[in-house]
């Protein structure tokens, strides 16, 4: 792909727009990024996008910022990462600066609170939709280890407040063991 001015402009504009619409927590940016970079621009394939999200998740800091950095880096190295981080940070920076000057009036405005109440439900639909897509993809593979890992990881974070890093580490190790075992099977298994 040609890395000319229009490429960087598309990267900037994409991350800027996505960031401007991540209401309700960083994870909302994941479905938005999938739609933009995987389906519309076709810059990254679906599986690689999930890997990038995993990396973004295992580093500290806001997930929306981390995923933008890594998408930018994937597309155009350090310069791409810088362009996409500026795109991601600008909307909250501009909006919060503006709001902090007249916060009280904004908070008490009935139109604003009606808008936000409606958007909560829309955001929930967007994220449930993407979870449905992702989870069905794993279930349809019909391998029991990933399915069990998904359920256990879900229960661990939801009901037992297990640290995310521990969840990721355990799943990574199980993945390595499972993968090595399958490789042994296809190669006829270890000599006994």
């Amino acid at each position: 792909m040609k890395k000319d001015a229009s490429f960087y402009w598309t990267l900037f504009l994409s991350t800027f727009t996505l960031s401007a619409f991540t209401f309700g927590g960083g994870y909302v940016i994941v479905p938005l990024m999938q739609k933009r970079f995987v389906r519309e621009l076709k810059w990254i394939d679906e599986e690689e996008m999930l890997d990038l999200v995993a990396i973004a998740q295992s580093a500290p800091g806001p997930i929306a910022v981390n995923s933008s950095i890594i998408v930018g880096y994937r597309m155009a190295g350090i310069l791409g990462a810088i362009v996409s981080i500026i795109g991601t940070v600008l909307p909250p920076l501009l909006i919060t600066t503006l709001i902090s000057y007249f916060y009280v009036a904004f908070r008490e405005n009935p139109i604003v609170s009606a808008l936000l109440l409606g958007m909560q439900a829309g955001v929930a639909a967007v994220i449930i939709n993407v979870i449905y897509d992702m989870a069905s993809k794993i279930i349809l593979q019909k391998e029991w280890i990933p399915i069990v890992m998904m359920i256990l990881a879900f229960a661990a974070t939801l009901f037992f407040d297990v640290n995310i890093l521990i969840v990721l580490a355990v799943c990574g190790i199980v993945g390595i063991l499972n993968h090595q075992e399958k490789k042994d099977e296809t190669e006829g298994g270890p000599e006994v």
Binding site: V28, E47, Q120, I147, I151, T157, L158, G175, I176, N178
Partner: peptide, 25 residues
């Protein structure tokens, strides 16, 4: 292997964050 193992975990993490957004809404 590690990356394949991480995929279900990522889905689960997004799922639990999504559930709390769903319940809030």
């Amino acid at each position: 292997g590690m990356i394949i193992g991480l995929r279900p975990a990522v889905v689960a993490l997004i799922g639990s964050a999504g559930l709390s957004i769903f319940l809030t809404a």
